[in-house]
Computed example of a mutant assay.
Amino acid sequence: MYIVIIAVLIAIVCMMLPYLFMLFQETNIVRLEKFLSGQRKNPALYLYYAIANKQDEEVGTLIDGLLLKYKHPQRQALYKAIYGAYRKSVSTMKNELIHIQSKQFRCYYETYVHIEEGNMELARATAATVSKPWMKNSVLSEIELRSGNRQEAIQLARQALQSSRGLQRYIVYKNYECELPEALL
Rank of each mutant, 00 (worst) to 15 (best):
N95I: 00
R106W: 04
K132I: 14
L67C: 08
Y86T: 03
A77I: 09
K71C: 00
Y108H: 15
R40P: 01
V113H: 11
L122A: 13
A50Q: 10
K54D: 05
T61H: 12
W134D: 14
Q74F: 13
Q55K: 15
V130R: 05
F105C: 01
E116P: 00
K94Q: 09
T126Y: 02
K54W: 00
M135D: 04
G118K: 15
I63F: 04
T126S: 10
N53T: 13
T61D: 10
Y86P: 01
A44D: 11
P73S: 15
K80N: 14
K103A: 11
W134I: 04
E121R: 12
T126C: 13
Q74P: 00
E121F: 14
Y48I: 04
N42S: 10
N95R: 12
V90I: 15
A44P: 01
P73E: 13
K132F: 10
M93S: 03
K88P: 00
D64W: 02
R124N: 12
Y86W: 07
P43R: 13
K41N: 11
E116Q: 10
E57M: 04
A44E: 13
Y86G: 02
Y109I: 03
L66I: 04
Q101I: 09
K88I: 01
K69P: 00
W134G: 03
P43G: 14
A85N: 14
M135Y: 12
Q39S: 12
L78D: 03
N53P: 00
N53H: 13
S102R: 10
N95Y: 02
Y83S: 06
L78G: 07
I98G: 05
A50D: 09
I98W: 02
G118C: 15
R124V: 06
E96N: 13
Y46C: 09
E117N: 12
E110S: 13
T61F: 07
K136H: 13
M135N: 06
Q104E: 15
L67W: 04
N42F: 10
